[in-house]
Amino acid sequence: MAGESGGEDVVAEYLGQNPQLAQWVETFRSYCESNKQWVARREFILRNMEAFPTVKPGVSSSSLDRLLSLSMVWANHVFLGCSYPQAVMDKIKEMGEGIKVQDPPVHKTTKDEFTARGKRSASAELEDDSCVKRAKAGPNELDSRPALRTAARPASQKLGPPPQAPAEHQPFFNRLYKAVAWKLVSAGGFGPNLDHFEILRSCVESCKQTLTCVFVPLKDITGLPAGRTQKEGHVCEIRCQTVFMGTGYGRDEAAARAMASKEALKVFQGRKVTVKICRRRYKGKDVDDLMLLDEQPRSQGFPPALSYPFQDEQLEDSSS
């Protein structure tokens, strides 16, 4: 946010030094534009004026109109949620780089709307859903708006699972969902007195897969809140097919594993489970991770990851 106000300050200062230019630029403001929108668009115009050498302050010309038009395209995209042909989008993405807009409104395009109304096929639904719902749900979310992503995200762009990964993993978890449901029914329903790990393990194995458990002693975890008195014990993270299912803490490894399994089984209490790509902390950085989620919107973010199965790619990326 500091950088943002900085950008504004620069613009304001620049305009303060060029009162004539400021006056001229002000004529481009349209009547219905709010201050916030206009300030952003003005920055867009000023930043890109040099790229249109024929634009002379105070003179209207067709190249000025082109610049104005692109500034409107950019503003319409950011503030109204319009999209344009790819060539135009690429152009404004490039031109708009570095301009920061504080909490831009979230709009659904009709395409999202269309799918959200239920006329959808399974795989398309998941991706769209993840974009729309998560955007409001948690801070750990991948930004669904490509043009803004550049501004909001650190440079680690190619990290993490491939975008099609959720769709690939989803069928397995659908099967697992059914298996767990039946298992719980036969065990008398979900409750505290179950052997959660055993249930989860047998279900996963009945679906011809295995669980991966990672254990980390609590004291080895950095960045915990300072006032924490508990220094003993272990934390366990359970994944299956690289998809994160749950984290749990316990006195010993078995207890931690049981707690993590319990957390994982909780996800299966919803109407369905969904694999999504979400942002979470891992070793002090934000990374994209594959998560198994239920439908409930989350009030808080996710616990930090203990392992990162996409590490290799990351290393490759950072080394190249």
Binding site: S62, D65, R66, L68, S69, L70, M72, V73, N76, L80, G81, C82, S83, Y84, P85, A87, V88, K91, H107, K108, T109, T110, K111, E113
Partner: peptide, 19 residues
């Protein structure tokens, strides 16, 4: 449709509908 059109902003190919 042209990216160089001085009125390209009038013609989004997709837009949001606020219910």
């Amino acid at each position: 449709s042209s990216p160089d059109s001085p009125i390209i902003d009038f013609y989004p190919d997709d837009f949001a509908i606020d219910l």
